[in-house]
Design a protein around this nucleic acid. Sequence first.
DNA 1: CAGCATCCAAAAGGATACTG
DNA 2: CAGTATCCTTTTGGATGCTG
Lengths: 104, 104
Amino acid sequence: MKTYPCSIEKALNIIGNKWSFLVLKELYDGKKRFNELKRTINGISPNALTTTLKHLEKNAILKRTVYPTVPVTVEYELTEKGQAFHSVLKEMKKWGAEWGDVTL
Amino acid sequence: MKTYPCSIEKALNIIGNKWSFLVLKELYDGKKRFNELKRTINGISPNALTTTLKHLEKNAILKRTVYPTVPVTVEYELTEKGQAFHSVLKEMKKWGAEWGDVTL
DNA sequence: CAGCATCCAAAAGGATACTG
DNA sequence: CAGTATCCTTTTGGATGCTG
């Protein structure tokens, strides 16, 4: 009794949750560090950010790189798969700008 | 201490949750009825569907029409605002089809 | 048919404190 | 800096049964 998910479900499962969208948005500007993301993303807790980043890394959306400085430096950047999702974000941004305040 | 949301946050707040994406997807085929949606959307409970539909109606994404038949008939269809979101779904679908099974 | 009410289990999320 | 651990509150969500 197995039904397999449509492409949209696949996409949603890979992305995960709402935080992911916002993390992705930040990373389109270029690689970022943990605290940078934490500062930039309004209201995210370290806990939620950790979870989100791990999920995205597991799904090959981003790559995590550790530099053995003191203290340690960790950078996050998008993979090709993550970059490809940019088209979705762009459409979403356009829609949000055009309709975000419309009540009809 | 007010920061106002970016367009992407606006979009996410209006859409709401994951179920909304799947409801929208169904409604791009044309107007649908409650049980039709319930049957088509894999694993959604009546409760979750009700909540989702109300949220989308409140945000002017869809329109609810009641026909006084016996028993009653209720149809849901997208507004212009809802239709406009189709471009996002289309991109998401493309991405899901291309990358949905890629592990890298 | 199209829901709403109720109950309960599970998961998400915030706050705070602490570590290599 | 980049998290982890813990606790606890809040949502979310499935299951079931009922109604106009």
